[in-house]
Design a binder for these strands. Sequence first.
DNA 1: ATACAATTTAAACAAATGATTAAGTCATAT
DNA 2: ATATGACTTAATCATTTGTTTAAATTGTAT
Lengths: 197, 197
Amino acid sequence: MGIETEMKIKEAAKKVFRSKGFAATRTRDIAEEAQINLALLNYYFKSKQQLFNIIMMEDLEDIFQVIISNANDKSLSLREKLFSLAEKYADVIAEKPELPNFILSEVHGNHEFLLDHFGIKESLSKSDMMAQFFGLGFSQEEIANIVVNLLGYIIFPYISRPMYTVIFNMDEDAFSRFINNRRKQIPEWIDSLLQKK
Amino acid sequence: MGIETEMKIKEAAKKVFRSKGFAATRTRDIAEEAQINLALLNYYFKSKQQLFNIIMMEDLEDIFQVIISNANDKSLSLREKLFSLAEKYADVIAEKPELPNFILSEVHGNHEFLLDHFGIKESLSKSDMMAQFFGLGFSQEEIANIVVNLLGYIIFPYISRPMYTVIFNMDEDAFSRFINNRRKQIPEWIDSLLQKK
DNA sequence: ATACAATTTAAACAAATGATTAAGTCATAT
DNA sequence: ATATGACTTAATCATTTGTTTAAATTGTAT
């Protein structure tokens, strides 16, 4: 059945693209991973580039959706929003650990992917979270610092994993424990960032 | 003169590899950037891969050298060491802003590059800094968290730059100002991390 | 000046790779 | 049962790309 094949290809492409990146991925890699004939890739998706674009868009959507929906949850205080954002983000990434490296590597120099396909800028600048930030007297720059640090707490360990797993001699399990223990610390660090006001 | 040509190629390769990564870089790109005949690349450096390895090793050396030399400067307290590390690191990266993305992307899945070519693990575990950490009662895991956060404060903004320059609408100048202002904040954040003890 | 080695060039090669083609196969509606 | 269209396959194409080759040029020691 066609739709199943299409999904098989997309799932395989996700796996291969995320692990090797666009340039290093050969369409034959994807075909083999999906156990389909090479020509099917071009039958269902016009080209390697188109297939890649679809996957990148979906991954970006996953990432941005967490931020936007959280930033507009009016039932939460600013502090609660940030805590919740950290937890949801950590969940998403724990589930797909290759996502940060993949997105950040591929987007580097390809800003087109970000150009308001999601209206992220508007959604966010008009969000409840921003209003709360400004209401508490934070400047645009202070907000940027807090957001960058918050996301860094969660994402950076994954990105830099090879470096410090060598430095600190961590195996797979040790890394998991490290990440899980870190999650408990993040709220403290967020509070430190908010403390000034 | 041979040595000049060799340097021209290496500099061009650095530029192109850092901006596009190994897989997306064509040897012809490098030749054009260096304004040399394509065959010279293979004459001076056996292959694309060898040229890449040399550059990667040099870049890693630059990165690790800062950490190791700082960690063994016995004239500094732990707090001073971390402050100094942050400053030196920020300097290195401000000078070569593509370095973080390049190294982290390429090392991802290629752990071989890190495998004790530098003895980084030993140098660091026996360093004065580690002794100071342990002397103050920090656990291995607490140390890892501090180091990861410290490096993240400096590196993560560069890596995630495309994401939040879109979100926060930053141009080139705004980004520079942001980075420079951040540098002044980092000592405070480091103190927060150390505060527990 | 001459010979010899180092350097540089233009051209070509071989393999890899994204994409297409044309001939099948299968499911489904009539 | 058959025709139609969706799906699948094997084979092939055209281009890109890393590398090599052989000839030409340049520099240098004698």
